[in-house]
Computed example of a mutant assay.
Amino acid sequence: MPWKISTVRRRRTAAALVAVVSWSLALSGCTSYDTTSPRDARSHPSDDAKGERGAVDCGKERCIALTFDAGPAKDTPRLLDILKEKKVSATFFLLGKNHVVKHPDLVRRMAAEGHEVANHTWTHQILTERDADEVREELSRTQNAIEKITGHKPTLMRPPQGRTDDQVAEVSRDLGLAQILWSATAKDYSTTDSALIKKRVLDQADRDGIILLHDIYAGTVPAVPGIIAELKKRGYTFVTVPQLMAPGVAEPGKVYRP
């Protein structure tokens, strides 16, 4: 009898844990979805989606991508100066309202200096909590604003908080946007300690990685020179997200994560 009671209790506990996890996922708006790694995209490009291999062959080189979310903002000019000085290309996932429309010269400079300009929605809404029309509005307004400034519509987007689902994927596909997540984050929204931001990035850095930072927080840009210097010392080559996947091309609607 004690054994039976113990077994029943374990089963009830397991069932309760499953229920809690399911409930949490429902609240977050997250669903399960397939992801493709940059390496897989690079190694198995489809016949109708082959990009040109760039100056860097990430199949041979130790590549890593720096990405910055939620700008441009007041610290972005200094960041662009650092990247230019260090000869590093990055990918910028830009917010439309209060950022792109307020700093068109910075958006234009990013594109002119070889950085990848990408979409991070109009107002940073959690897309899994919005209906399809609202998701489309969040993405298309930023698409149009960036195109007006640079002459080109982005092909990449990053959903706020990395939260996506089938509906977001469908709208992204319609708008020609692939979804890009990350493998390393400094959680720079939680600290102004540049040394800590640097440490967190370096601890998580790996080949074919995608680093998530924000150029809107005070501690981030001062951490960038040290991050670049140490990763170069470790033999990494910095590339944009499209370069990380070449000769493959990120396909609209798909979710990419190292």
Score class of each variant (00 low, 15 high):
D193H: 11
G96V: 04
G96A: 05
E170S: 10
T67A: 03
V201L: 08
A26I: 12
M245C: 11
V255P: 03
A15E: 11
R130T: 08
P225L: 09
L196I: 05
A218W: 05
D131A: 10
Q243K: 07
S24V: 15
T67S: 05
D206M: 11
G29L: 05
P242H: 00
L83G: 07
P2I: 14
L94K: 02
R53P: 12
T35Q: 03
Y189W: 15
L175Q: 01
T240M: 05
R141E: 13
P242M: 04
T237C: 06
L127I: 03
D34R: 14
A169D: 01
V8M: 15
G219D: 03
L25F: 14
L231V: 07
V107T: 02
K84N: 12
R207P: 01
V249K: 11
L213Y: 08
I210T: 02
R53V: 15
E85G: 02
L231A: 04
R200Y: 10
R11P: 00
A145E: 13
V18N: 08
V21R: 10
K60W: 11
P258K: 08
M157V: 05
D47T: 15
G248V: 10
V56M: 07
T164D: 07
D69M: 09
R10T: 01
L79K: 09
L181A: 00
A218S: 12
V107H: 01
P45R: 12
G59K: 09
R78S: 14
T164L: 14
P225Y: 13
K60T: 15
D47N: 14
E170L: 06
A15D: 10
D48R: 12
T237G: 02
K233Q: 12
A246T: 02
S37F: 08
D133Q: 10
K4A: 14
F93E: 01
Q125F: 04
T13V: 09
A55T: 15
R163L: 15
W122A: 05
V224A: 10
K4V: 12
L231S: 03
A19V: 15
A16W: 08
D206P: 00
L106F: 04
A223Y: 11
A65R: 01
D215Y: 00
G29Q: 07
M1Q: 10
R257Y: 00
A19D: 04
D75G: 05
E138D: 06
V239S: 02
E134W: 10
L66H: 01
F93G: 01
T240C: 05
W182A: 00
K153Y: 09
F68E: 02
L177A: 08
V107R: 00
E129T: 07
R39T: 13
V241C: 10
T36G: 04
I180C: 04
M1P: 08
W122G: 04
L127A: 01
P160F: 04
K87I: 01
K199E: 15
V8S: 13
M157R: 09
V249D: 00
R257S: 01
R136D: 10
R10N: 03
D69T: 02
V249S: 07
